[in-house]
Design a protein around this nucleic acid. Structure first.
Lengths: 110, 110
DNA sequence: TAGCTAAATCGTAATATTGCGATATTAAAG
DNA sequence: CTTTAATATCGCAATATTACGATTTAGCTA
């Protein structure tokens, strides 16, 4: 055991969970923060920004990329990472109904 | 190793990461879905709804409670779980600026 | 009190994540 | 072609998560 039973849940629930997981580590939130702050799409700058070793940052970048939250363009020697707006838009669209329903509920109990 | 270096990141980044982690499992998304759907605050109904054993569901409920996303009121024999709107509002407030900045950026590169 | 039901906790196995040193890979520079 | 720089990948150790059977806790009812 220990393997998540993803097949028992809806596609939507798994999509939400996957996007949440991608941002469930402060380093990855910090990477997104940085990519939003800097005008240009930084590459190895991210490694310099974070208090983590290069291989570790590379791994976090890979996870964000797998989740589709960032894109990586090879630019000669280095790689240019940047926000993938499409996925963020989808994420927002998935969360909107939840936040909306929470507000509509208005403490029906407890 | 293996322990997340939470102390190297900002309080905000850790807060976001923690809330994300709480919803990074489809079962926990399903629990929130269910609590939003049902008018009354269900208790053991959640166990019946999910394709998981009772101890497993109890564990997921505990994590959602620890993150502050749900509340649990003891009601005689059983427990009444429900959405904690305050935390959801905070979560939304934390994400809003990110989604906003993503849209404002409008593919500056890549 | 004894028995029943609902939920939490314990203990443990399987698996996943995090972090990083060492090592590849790839492309520009000399 | 060799060197250098920037990233990615490998392999491993430490730790965390997921799942659940067995057990405990707590309240209700008879």
């Amino acid at each position: 055991m220990g393997a998540t039973k993803t097949d028992h849940f809806t596609k939507r629930q798994n999509e939400i969970a996957n996007l949440m997981k991608a941002l469930s580590h402060p380093a990855r939130v910090a990477i997104i923060d940085h990519l939003l702050k800097v005008a240009a799409c930084v590459c190895g700058d991210i490694v310099a920004e974070l208090p983590l070793a290069q291989p570790t940052v590379s791994q976090h970048l890979k996870e964000l990329k797998n989740a589709g939250l960032i894109k990586g363009d090879i630019e000669g020697n280095s790689v240019c990472y940047c926000i993938n707006e499409k996925t963020f838009a989808k994420f927002e669209a998935l969360l909107q109904p939840i936040f909306g329903k929470v507000k509509a509920k208005a403490s029906s109990c407890c």
